[in-house]
Design a protein around this nucleic acid. Structure first.
Length: 414
DNA sequence: TCTGGGGTCCTAGGACCC
DNA sequence: TCTGGGGTCCTAGGACCC
């Protein structure tokens, strides 16, 4: 099946992941329109079940909005630990088929199965086996895309939901892309779509045929990348966890239950955020010298971020708090505050002592990969809850973060 | 009771040093 | 005394992803 130098990549996307996990955990929710939300009053819908989607419920809606379009909507406050637990176990299944597994987010992964085809036959067989095991073990479905690279595999997995299996064969790429809207590509967001539309480029076919110079004139070095994307070309490798896999920043932000302007309250919240950042940084075994403070005002639209870089790296909560306070001291708050955020970057990673023997090293990396998934997705609600158990805002906050965005980055439109 | 939270990457522009 | 260039580090802001 694979030609010389040609890869076979799977992209696996769990369908309505959080909602599916909840429906599986509680049979009373099955077949019903449900929405998973974060804790606290000012939360939005993170994921909804297909039953809810059919009635118009969308991610990002406020609870009242969801209830308006679907009065029988059942609201479930999400539980990160449940999802990370399931996610980790699903990742174990993936590793039975290839060691080249890259987690894109808690519910999406790429698998390079090029070297597994000899063992299992075809990529399609692998996809069916994975689907069957996930359904059998967890009762949930996924959509799988099979293609010669990550970009196309992700595109393919999006084409049939739920429970889809879509193959984009190498000799079929141009046909599939010809009429495909550009915003279907991972990496082309609203702004980029707008700019391209202004150039009369609407489909991948048109993007792929566009003169490269025209794109680079408008978008700089991103231009050549865009043309390749339009042609369905993507050489980025599936990158498994390894010793080089390191976090670049650690941050927490939180929308307050109500807008506040009392400096004492603001400071208290800043301390909590600093503690969350510090404890996670220490768990990751990193320290950083740049501290970033982010404030969103009550009007929602105005916000600012300021950062400061220290002489040395820190990861103690009180030091992070002190740095955040020093930034805050340089500004006059113009309005009550809606959201506060603290993050630590410019990170230094402590050297790891590696085991002498190969199999021990392998085991260590596998464990670390699991820990990383757990940490990145699951720690926050626990930390925060234990810090201030009496706070209403200490509920579980559901977040599906990603940590390895691919695709087109910022562009400077000339 | 309008509108969450976790990231990564990229660019511009200024300070500073050689 | 004046002018110029390269490199690095830093801050700020934006786009994109889930």
């Amino acid at each position: 099946m694979a030609r010389d130098g040609q890869r076979t990549v799977l992209h696996i996307d769990m369908n309505a992941f959080f909602a599916s996990v909840e429906q599986q955990a509680n049979p009373a929710l099955r077949g019903k329109p449900i929405a998973v939300v974060g804790g606290g009053g000012r939360t939005v819908i993170t994921t909804s079940s297909y039953e809810a989607r059919a009635r118009g419920v969308k991610t990002g809606m406020a609870i009242w909005e969801g209830k308006r379009v679907c009065p029988e909507l059942i609201i479930v406050v999400g539980d990160n630990r449940k999802y990370t637990h399931t996610s980790s176990k699903i990742n174990v299944i993936f590793r039975d088929f290839t060691s080249e597994v890259e987690a894109f987010s808690i519910d999406e992964s790429w698998l390079d199965v090029t070297h597994s085809l000899g063992l299992f036959g075809t990529a399609e067989t692998i996809a069916y086996l994975i689907k069957a095991r996930i359904r059998h073990n967890f009762g949930i479905t996924c959509s799988i895309g099979i293609a010669p690279n990550k970009l196309l595999a992700k595109l393919a997995s999006d084409m049939q939901k739920p429970d889809g299996l879509t193959i984009i064969a190498a000799d079929d790429v141009s046909r599939v892309l010809e009429a495909m809207p550009i915003n279907e590509l991972c990496g082309i967001g609203k702004k980029m779509q707008h700019h391209l539309n202004m150039m009369s480029i609407y489909t991948c076919g048109e993007l792929g045929r566009c003169e490269e110079a025209r794109l680079t004139r408008k978008f700089g070095i991103i231009g050549s990348r865009l043309k390749l994307m339009g042609q369905g070309i993507d050489h980025s490798p599936v990158t498994p966890f390894s010793e080089e896999d390191e976090v670049k920043s650690v941050g927490h932000s939180r929308t307050l239950e109500r807008d506040i302007d009392d400096p004492l309250e603001i400071n208290r919240f800043l301390l909590q955020l600093s503690e969350m950042v510090g404890s996670r940084a220490r768990r990751y075994n990193v320290s950083g010298k740049t501290i970033h403070l982010y404030v969103r005002y009550a009007d929602f639209f105005s916000s600012w971020g300021k950062q400061t870089t220290l002489k040395s790296c820190i990861n103690q909560s009180d030091e992070i708090y002190k740095a955040a306070l020093s930034i805050l001291a340089t500004v006059n708050l113009e309005q009550p505050v809606r959201l506060l955020g603290v993050s630590l970057s410019n990170l230094k990673h402590e050297a790891k002592q590696l085991p002498l023997f190969e199999d021990e090293r392998k085991k260590l990396f596998a464990t670390q990969a699991m820990d990383t998934i757990n940490d990145r997705f699951g720690s926050m609600a626990v930390t925060f809850g234990s810090l201030i158990p009496e706070k209403a805002s200490a509920g579980s906050h559901v977040i599906p973060p990603s940590w390895r965005p691919e695709g087109v980055k910022n562009i400077d439109v000339k």
